[in-house]
Design a protein around this nucleic acid. Structure first.
Ligand SMILES: [Fe+3]
Ligand SMILES: [Fe+3]
Length: 908
DNA sequence: AAGAAAAAAAAA
């Protein structure tokens, strides 16, 4: 038997005598890679990979498994073999006690990671095949990075000097023996190696290698196997690999050969009629479907954008097409959960006889009931797999943190994708997961400069990786549109196309097929197109009176306030004789999670589209923060709002007279009362807090300016000249800073305008710079692998810039113990015990995010409950024990729970 | 001194 089989790569968890030799693990991994290439991954992705490596398909089937197999070559080194007692005992039997003590004596104290040792030792063998040393070293770094971070040139240089850590003579012989066997097993030859590497191919190779390693490291599929000759071991390897890929969900689901007309595709939707948008997409797809492209859809809600994006995924995703599956990336967890249900419905209907791997991808996915029900194929009950009926499934294998993006179908937060563009650990696995998949990004207008920069880079890399992208938005400024198109073009190596002017709502197409690049308009529903809202400026003090007068005969109103405290005040100011408790609702984010869900439910019951449309609704007023302009489909007869940047106002007015229904007689047209800003001297004073923490002064000034130029009506879809709708005019006037103010300014107001603009511009630049320090380089900079994960020591790899917040759970101390106040079971909680999943849900239902700076600092310093430390969902949550409804453990602060107003934090 | 909404954080 070969000597190297007496070393270990994996130890058995139960039996210290049994271990898995390095060569076997390398062969497992190589075989998994080969199976993924032939059966698991999309053929288009595989063919793009061989094209970009400039080798043919057969060569790729030798080369990739070989490179993948060699990933743990660095385990054949004293630093790895002697790292713990159990391992040392095994290795000493072969290497001898003296080898161990020599290592102890001479080694550098800093342990060299085995991935780095791979990067140091592999190139020599690659060069023996005649490879250029630069390529050989880069390939070794790619495979040596399988633990998430590519070895840095400095690490490699240092490691080369630490000969005792890496091992000399005998160790070198063992490594050579192992590589030789791997060469024999994979049958690789000189001609199979690539002579060039593109940036995208580095990511795909690295992702593929790590994925193969993860699968091959699972001891349920690859039992540690010592004392077996190689010939014996490889006999059953193909079977094992096949079982692993089947049970992990990598093989099994097959896409259709062709797509269907949308009427058939969506026949599960009652009375589905294709919208014009969808027809336009269907018309375009035959010409677009064979090359990755970017499609930007700008249009109001309710025009079928989601189904439109499914049509794109369908066309790109037919078997043999450019994509396999799709990822729907949304701004929030709540919208992801909602969409998960909708896409499930589509997939079930489309693949009634198959199990379709489909995952919900965000940090709290496990808490969603709809999702949990679909999780099957737990590794401990694998034999039940065949009994599971067809439908949408989520294999447990995919549920671990970095894996779900690999699943063919997924919905989740955009952040999950953005972590791939940050130089974070295993970012290449995330990008590999998105490669060759249709990626749908929703509400791309809704992010600040920092996150938008990350999105821009994501588009660039998705183009390089060959993923078609649908980007959806209510409104984009011309500049944003051009930025995104330019980014995607860069990714496939072209300069940005010049886009024709075209009025909203529109489709923008960006494809390497130049003749396809254009912007086209589409038609929208009458209800949307004829939207005409009168607006009037009022003072804050008029609110109660206006509501009193307008809702005499019933009807509904929303009052949107910028701050929570203002919303609470407005709510309390509602005249009790007019608005009984049932007739007023308060909604903001500082409620316990469960209470907020309850409030949202109430809103849907009172203002939702299921409410009888033939009658005037009973009187009801809803005081809310901007939370309400998000996903809830609500309709109000009347709206009052604080001033907010124009895009948010446009979003809000979408909630006025949204549905087709009977209106109160006193309200004859859709109406928006805007609360006039206060003035100090000649200058608007939008409030200190608002300007410091919430909205940019310059955007408010521009919004105020442009609204004053209107004749009292917001008509987003009205043409103000032959090519421009009002909505484009409004957005450009506010977001294109080259437009001068419309009103004539005096020197004070002009100064204010200029200085607020300068401040905003410099903030945008600094956010962009921050993002650039943390994300991948440009594709055309041809980064080396280490540059993809190397970042400044203290770089905070976040997907959104946001002030720190802390999540707290409020529980009540009672004679019967600690009780969660809203829990139906009213059972005691024991924070020193590990909670069950149901308990975790119950606990998080009682959580709320607090933001006040002084409070956050002190709450964060509180210890975590002992039973929660190991729970990823509760680890960062603080438990506050209320005494008689109050928590006053933090000096000068009091936290309490008010049934009507929410969680109250007061500084004493 | 003042605070909207939104996300995330475990693999071999
Ligand atoms: Fe490893
Ligand atoms: Fe490994």
């Amino acid at each position: 038997m070969m000597d190297s089989l007496l070393l270990w790569a994996k130890l058995d968890k139960k039996n210290s005598e049994i271990y898995h030799p390095p060569l076997f693990h390398l062969i497992d991994t190589a075989t998994v890679t080969k199976a993924l290439l032939t059966k698991g991954l999309s053929p288009y992705l595989v063919s793009r990979l061989s094209e970009s490596l400039e080798i043919n398909h057969e060569s790729l089937l030798q080369f990739a498994p070989f490179l993948s197999g060699s990933h743990d070559l660095g385990k054949i080194a004293p630093d790895f073999q002697f790292q713990n007692d159990q391992g040392s005992e095994i290795a000493k039997k072969l290497m001898g006690e003296s080898s161990y003590s020599l290592w102890q004596k001479n080694r550098e104290r800093n342990k060299i990671l085995h991935g780095t040792i791979t990067a140091v030792t592999l190139p020599e063998y690659l060069e023996n095949f005649g490879l250029d040393s630069i390529i050989a070293e880069e390939l070794a770094v790619i495979t040596g990075g399988h633990h998430g971070i590519f070895p840095h040139p400095n690490d490699i240089k240092n490691a080369k000097y630490s000969k005792s850590n890496i091992g000399k003579k005998h160790w070198i012989k063992l490594r050579k023996e192992t590589v030789d066997e791997l060469v024999k097993y994979t049958k690789i030859e000189k001609k199979d190696f690539p002579t060039k590497l593109t940036p995208a191919s580095k990511i795909i190779l690295a992702g593929l290698i790590t994925l193969s390693d993860w699968i091959a490291s699972n001891q349920a599929w690859f039992r540690p196997c010592s004392n077996k000759p190689l010939e014996e071991y490889v006999k059953t390897i193909d079977e094992k690999v096949d079982k692993a890929l089947r049970e992990s969900g990598w093989i099994g689901w097959e896409s259709h050969d062709s797509t269907l007309p949308s009427k058939k595709l969506f026949n599960y939707i009652k009375e589905f009629e294709p919208r014009h948008l969808q027809e336009e997409i269907e018309k375009k797809m035959p010409e677009l479907q064979d090359k990755p492209f970017l499609l930007i859809i700008e249009g109001p809600t309710g025009e079928g954008k989601t189904e439109g994006s499914i049509i794109v995924a369908e066309w790109c995703g037919v078997s043999g097409g450019i994509a396999r599956g799709a990822y729907f990336a949304l701004p929030t967890q709540a919208t992801s959960n909602e969409l998960y249900k909708r896409i499930s419905q589509y997939l079930r209907n489309r693949y009634p006889l198959q199990k379709v791997p489909f995952h919900l991808v965000h940090s709290n996915a496990q808490l969603s009931d709809t999702f949990s029900e679909t999780i099957i194929c737990r590794l401990d009950q694998v034999y039940d797999e065949d009994k599971h009926p067809p439908g949408v499934i989520a294999n447990e294998w995919f549920t671990y943190r970095k894996r779900p993006l690999l699943s063919p179908w997924g919905t989740g937060t955009i952040d999950q994708a953005l972590m791939g563009i940050l130089r974070s650990k295993h970012n290449f696995v995330r990008l590999f997961g998105l490669a060759g998949k249709t990626v749908i990004l929703d509400e791309i207008h809704a992010y600040d400069a920092y996150t938008s920069t990350l999105i821009e880079w994501l588009l660039e890399w998705l183009a390089a990786l060959g993923s078609p992208v649908v980007a959806m938005s209510a409104t984009l400024s011309q500049k944003q549109r051009e930025t995104f198109v330019a980014a995607y073009s860069r990714g496939f190596g072209e300069s940005a196309p010049i886009l024709n002017q075209c009025p909203y709502p529109r489709l923008t197409i960006c494809s390497p097929k130049i003749e396809q690049n254009k912007v086209i308009s589409f038609n929208i529903s009458k209800l949307n197109a004829s939207r005409k809202i009168r607006f009037e400026w009022i003072d804050e003090a008029q609110i109660p009176q206006i509501l009193e007068n307008s809702l005499k005969q019933g009807g509904t109103a929303a009052i949107l306030r910028t701050q929570i405290a203002w919303a609470q005040q407005t709510y309390q100011d509602l005249i009790p004789s007019t608005f009984s408790k049932d007739e007023r609702i308060l909604l903001h984010s500082r409620f316990l999670h469960i209470d907020r869900k309850q409030q949202e439910k109430r809103c849907l019951a009172v203002y939702g589209k299921e409410v009888d449309k033939t009658k005037v609704r009973p009187r009801s007023a809803c005081a809310a923060t901007q939370i309400i302009e998000q996903s809830l489909d609500l309709d109000f007869d009347l709206m009052i709002s604080d001033l907010a940047p124009i895009d948010l106002l446009l979003q809000r007015i979408g909630r006025i007279w949204r549905h087709d229904r009977v209106r109160p007689t006193g309200i004859t047209e859709p109406l928006l009362y805007l609360i006039r800003p206060k003035f100090k001297d000649d200058l608007p004073d939008f409030d200190f807090i608002v300007e410091k923490f919430i909205y940019e002064r310059h955007l408010l000034l521009r919004t105020w300016d442009v609204l004053n130029s209107l004749d009292g009506y917001l008509e987003p879809f009205k043409f103000i000249d032959s090519k421009t709708r009002q909505i484009d005019y409004l957005i450009e006037q506010v977001y294109d800073f080259s437009h001068p103010p419309l009103a004539s300014l005096n020197s004070a107001t002009q100064d204010d305008w200029n200085s607020s603009q300068a401040k905003l511009e410099s903030q945008i630049i600094s956010e962009q710079r921050l993002a650039r320090n943390r994300n991948l380089p440009h594709v055309n900079q041809q980064p080396e692998a280490w540059e993809l994960t190397h970042r400044p020591e203290n770089a905070d790899l976040v997907t959104r810039l946001t002030p720190r917040t802390v999540t707290v759970v409020l529980a009540q101390e009672t004679a019967r113990g600690l009780i969660l106040p809203r829990s139906r079971s009213k059972r005691q909680i024991h924070p020193n015990r590990k909670p069950t999943k149901e308990e975790v849900k119950d606990i998080l239902d009682h959580s709320v995010n607090l933001t006040k700076r002084g409070l956050v600092d002190q709450l964060e310093a509180l210890p975590t409950e002992s039973g929660w430390i190991q729970n990823t969902l509760l680890r960062n949550v603080k438990l506050l024990r209320l005494q008689n409804g109050y928590y006053s453990e933090i000096p000068n602060w009091q936290i309490s729970l008010n049934d009507e107003l929410g969680v109250i934090t007061t500084q004493i």
